[in-house]
Simulated scan of single mutants.
Amino acid sequence: MNTNDSAATRYTTLTSDSIHELEIKRSRFITYLFRVETEAAARAHIAALRKSHFDARHHCSAFILGPDRIVQRSNDDGEPSGTAGIPMLDALAKREMPDASVLSDVLAVVVRYFGGIKLGAGGLVRAYSDAVSSGLDHAPLHLRQRLRIFAFTASHAQAARYENELRAAGYQVEPTEWQAQHAIVRIGIPDTEQAAQELHTHIATLTSGAATLNSTNTQWVDLI
Rank of each mutant, 00 (worst) to 15 (best):
M1Y: 09
D5P: 03
R10K: 14
R10V: 11
T12E: 04
L14R: 04
S16W: 09
S16K: 14
D17K: 13
E21R: 04
E21C: 06
L22E: 12
F29Y: 07
F29Q: 08
F29P: 01
L33F: 11
L33K: 09
V36Q: 11
E37N: 12
T38K: 04
E39S: 12
E39G: 10
A41C: 07
A44Y: 13
A48R: 11
S52C: 11
A56F: 05
R57H: 12
H59N: 07
H59A: 00
C60Q: 01
C60D: 05
I64W: 00
I64C: 09
L65D: 04
G66A: 07
D68K: 07
D68H: 04
R69Q: 09
R69W: 09
I70Y: 11
V71P: 13
S74C: 15
S74F: 15
N75A: 08
D76R: 00
D76K: 01
E79D: 07
P80N: 10
S81M: 10
G82T: 02
T83Q: 11
T83W: 00
T83F: 00
T83H: 07
M88K: 01
M88F: 09
D90Q: 14
L92C: 06
L92A: 07
K94Y: 12
K94G: 14
P98E: 05
P98R: 09
V102H: 15
L103Y: 03
L103A: 06
S104I: 10
V106F: 02
L107H: 01
R112E: 08
R112I: 02
Y113F: 11
G115R: 00
I117F: 05
L119I: 09
V125E: 13
R126Y: 10
A127S: 08
D130W: 01
D130T: 07
S133P: 04
S133M: 03
G135T: 05
D137W: 11
H138N: 12
P140N: 04
H142G: 09
H142T: 10
H142R: 10
L143S: 14
R144N: 06
Q145V: 10
L147R: 06
F152S: 00
A157E: 13
Q158M: 15
A159I: 01
A159H: 02
E163H: 02
E163G: 01
E165I: 05
A169E: 12
G170Y: 08
E174A: 15
E177F: 03
A180L: 13
H182L: 14
A183W: 00
I184E: 15
R186W: 00
R186A: 08
G188K: 07
T192S: 09
Q197T: 15
Q197Y: 09
Q197I: 12
I203P: 04
L206W: 01
S208M: 13
G209R: 08
G209Y: 08
A210I: 12
T216E: 15
T216A: 11
T216H: 09
T216Q: 15
T218I: 02
D222A: 15
L223I: 06
I224K: 14
